[in-house]
Amino acid sequence: MGELDSGVGGYFAGMKNNSSFKKICVTVVWSWLFIFAMVPVLLTLITSFLTADSSSLVVFKPTLQNYTQLFNSAYLKILLQSLYLATSCTLLCLIIGYPFAFTIARSKSRHRALLLLLVMIPFWTSSLIRTYAIMALIKAKGILNTVLLAIGLIHHPLPILYSYSAVLLGCVYDLLPFMILPLYGNIEKLNPDLLEAAQDLGAGKIRTMVKVVFPLTMPGIIAGTLLVFLPAMTMFYIPVLLGGAKNLLLGNLIENQFLSANNWPMGAAISMLITVFMGAMILLYWRNAQSKDKQNLQELV
């Protein structure tokens, strides 16, 4: 076991092997992803530098206008609003999710599979339906108000729906599993001896957390942030269903530009802005994750 000279390299790590089977596999995979993943993004990038036109949607007239327009007060306000909402949502998910993930990762192993499955089910469940569920919970004649009225805590239905809090609540509810799963994956890998060692060396509970646990689970925190922050800005139906028209976010903006205002270049520019955000966060993640943790997202499935 552990022979240094047995594990490295070898036929399967890729000695020259040009079987036709390999060629077919690689060609199919790359063609598909090139056509349906890379070319579309390239098209978005190109479109974002073109000019909108009422008759043919887009005309080939290069311009930077779509980007400069982003700094208009109206757009800027939506951008800041989105950032604010996404940040609050991410922080709330982290605050709720971290202790939760920590607890289930440290629970008895025979319970752990079930506890994890219970998080995984909402993870894979339609977030639209779950948004609808929140809507049913908080609307004026919803269950929450009915219960509160019935027990006499309030005398008039609370106007929760169609407010900023409703949108925030919806985002947290929808995206919490996306924070918990990567955190869980990271915390579970944490060697419990490490915590004991830290405490043994005289570090208090809080110190252990801050100096040992947080830094070691940083890849999980960043992965969770990645999976919560970006959707929070772009899930257009959450503001539509829970915020009415009042809370316009980047997602709604893109949707508008594409499907109502017919200003595709503008929509593409906003989409590129989000892509740049994402790129920055991914780089941060890759820098933080040790090379072996790079497949951290694998643990989601």
């Binding site: 959707p231 257009f236 929509g267 593409a268 994402m278 991914i282 997202l297």
Partner: peptide, 20 residues
């Protein structure tokens, strides 16, 4: 690329495919 595709917001994928 696979990693990026997983974390890309769906709206970005949606409009880029619409453009395609």
């Amino acid at each position: 690329l696979l990693f990026v595709m997983i974390v890309t917001p769906e709206i970005v994928i949606g409009i880029s495919l619409l453009l395609l």
